[in-house]
Nucleic acid binder design. Structure first.
Lengths: 200, 200
DNA sequence: ATTATCTATAGATCTATAGATAATGC
DNA sequence: ATTATCTATAGATCTATAGATAATGC
């Protein structure tokens, strides 16, 4: 039963949004176009009136995923909040609305040039975000701290998602959260100062 | 042209070794049984005389991959050496002989119970290895430091492999290497002591 | 005769295309 | 008449199975 005049652009966006969720949730190749179209209430046949290829959808869906990260970062005002929320069990359990860089970190290796380019842009945006919040002095130190923090976050989140032991999964998130928040150079020197002031 | 009596066990091991390489290199589902058998100089038909299913090969290949990590860790005697070699460009460029936990961190989410169980065992073994070398005092601190270090290493390695900018890729490896080796709690307090001694 | 491997193929996907269909808007 | 979507299908995989074949070892 065709339903014309119901805004083609809306349908297009709906397909992209669904793909953006499912790709992060299950991986780019673990879901078929038929499944995605069906979730949108459509059939496979119509797909190529919206996209010239599967790859085109992958790129659009990835870019759409990044919007979730942009919205999230707007609500984050401190380094501690960023790390705590990124490494929360809630984020681990909901890859479909979470960080696309983490969710697709293994997948993109075998993707097209366009996908990898979009991915690299998003990595760079994330590094800038974490650098801007990083407790470090000077542009270079901030940049390096951003790379360090983002790497630790991605590694911990993906490890916690991949193992099948819930306790170990939680322990990894907690340990990395703790060491990132407590044991960062600037924070440590802050603590030292407090200790000194207290003992004086 | 069949070649009987040439040790079935040898052929079996050869298939497993090839799979162990290709799965790490390209991902578990980006390579077909036909391709693997062909690289072993065989045809697909014979596959099921060696394995009851594709999944069985995935498990055996994963376990075989872990041997590379065990051999590697035997030659590692210090924390600094572990981090430096793990985050080397050479490791980044040769996933086929490198850490299977990193190479398959995204892939295992959609794999069978057996694969995920083997993966979890290997994560645990790696955590123990990094914990044993970690510059931290006390069993708990060592355990947490191991999780922290391994997460940062996996995140940095996989990010460096996924992006398409060689310079950024190298910068990430370098920054994480530097901050892990220089800025670890125990090392920092060591440095502080040296500074104090020098100024005294 | 046994056994490892081969050829051939069934059955299940999945991407992509061709042409039909039905609701809107002139 | 136009246009968005549908049904149907071609062509390319990929896993798994059935039965044939050829080299060894009795």
């Amino acid at each position: 039963m065709p339903k014309p005049r119901l805004q083609k652009a809306d349908t297009h966006a709906r397909i992209v949004d669904i793909a953006a969720k499912r790709f992060r949730e299950r991986g780019i190749h673990e879901i078929s176009l038929a499944d995605l179209m069906s979730e949108a209430g459509l059939t496979v046949g119509g797909f190529y009136k919206h996209f010239s290829s599967r790859d085109e959808l992958v790129v659009e869906a990835f870019v759409a995923s990044c919007q979730d990260a942009v919205s999230w970062s707007r609500g984050v005002s401190s380094y501690q909040q960023a790390v705590t929320e990124y490494l929360a069990e809630n984020h681990r359990d909901h890859p479909e609305t979470g960080c696309a860089v983490a969710a697709l970190v293994g997948d993109v290796k075998s993707e097209s040039h366009s996908v990898r380019a979009a991915y690299t842009r998003e990595v760079r945006r994330n590094l800038e975000f974490f650098s801007s919040l990083a407790p470090a002095d000077g542009a270079l130190a901030k940049r390096q701290a951003g790379m360090f923090i983002f790497s630790a976050c991605i590694g911990a989140l993906e490890l916690s998602r991949s193992i099948d032991d819930p306790k170990l999964s939680r322990d990894i998130l907690r340990a990395v959260r703790k060491l990132l928040v407590d044991e960062t150079p600037a924070r440590r020197s802050l603590k030292r100062q407090k200790r000194r002031r207290a003992s004086a």
